[in-house]
């Protein structure tokens, strides 16, 4: 008896527990169901790619997970906790960070200041009534800026960055936030081939430290970073599996060929 009780306490339950567990997620805008009964499970440490034609509901799914949009049905469990109806800042505090599809950084602030905002040790206004940076925060910011290749621009106002640099800055900011789950919405959109490769390197360096859900179209990039893909179509999960399985899935091929064959682009 006693031994069993101890044993059951010793057996860690967490490795089995999903980090993110989305069940039957639904949202409709003026009658149109944009996300329609979506199930999605991410295990800790996983890198998952979400693909699907334009308008499939990928960004909306991220909006729902991060609290930007309120679902009309379904639940979102994060580390076993129901976060379905929390406001965005509480979801962020629970450990979910997000990079938006349209890069959104604070244009009036410098690169370093952007990072400082993201490095949210304490979200309370009174705790923040102190001078800006401790030594270890500074070091962390320089490490991350180095990681995303923006060290040489640390004092530059964010509005002077190129498109690719802005994307990296936003990825860096999400890292500074050190969330357990990172949502990346089309991190390579508008990037050159070299920039895309560098972004893949950044994401690969994060493997293991964060669980990552990334929306992406570029299949070379997808091959570089992940093995399990979830395909969305009209708000539903169409297929899920390894790259090879997805690429030979007739349903997926049909949907994609219908919308321009993105998968072999």
């Amino acid at each position: 008896m006693v031994q069993r009780a101890i044993a059951s306490r010793l057996v860690p339950s967490s490795p089995q527990q999903a980090l993110l567990d989305v069940r039957g997620l639904e949202v409709s805008f003026s009658g149109l169901k944009v996300v329609d009964g979506l199930d999605l499970t991410l295990m800790p440490g996983e890198v998952r790619v979400l693909i699907g034609a334009n308008g499939a509901g990928k960004t909306t799914t991220m909006d729902l997970i991060s609290g930007k949009t309120k679902p009309t049905g379904g639940t979102i469990l994060f580390k076993g906790r129901n976060i379905t109806h929390l406001p965005p800042h509480e979801i962020a505090r629970a450990g979910i960070g997000r990079k938006f599809q349209i890069p959104s950084v604070f244009k009036d602030l410098t690169v370093t200041e952007n990072m400082q905002v993201a490095l949210c040790c304490s979200p309370s206004v009174f705790a923040n009534l102190r001078q800006c940076l401790q030594r270890k925060d500074q070091e962390r910011i320089s490490t991350i800026l180095h990681q995303v290749g923006l060290s040489h621009l640390s004092r530059e106002p964010a509005c002077n960055l190129s498109h690719g640099q802005t994307q990296w800055l936003e990825i860096g900011m999400v890292l500074a936030q050190s969330p357990d789950l990172v949502l990346l919405d089309e991190p390579t959109a508008g990037m050159t081939v070299q920039e895309t490769r560098k972004t893949a390197e950044i994401i690969n360096a994060l493997r293991g430290k964060h669980t990552i859900l990334v929306v992406e179209h570029d299949m070379t990039f997808v091959r570089d970073i992940c093995h399990i893909i979830t395909v969305m179509h009209q708000g539903r999960k169409l297929a899920e599996g390894t790259i090879e399985a997805i690429e030979s899935n007739p349903e997926v091929l049909e949907v994609y060929l219908g919308s321009g064959g993105v998968i072999h682009a």
Binding site: A92, F106, K107
Partner: peptide, 29 residues
């Protein structure tokens, strides 16, 4: 006050109020 982290956050809120929330700050506070 302007030179504290709170001051920095005020500027961030002015630049993009929505975005600040996703870093865990309760903008209303």
């Amino acid at each position: 006050l302007g030179s504290t982290r709170a001051g920095l956050l005020f500027r961030a809120v002015q630049a993009d109020e929505q975005r600040v929330q996703y870093f865990g700050y309760d903008v209303a506070v």
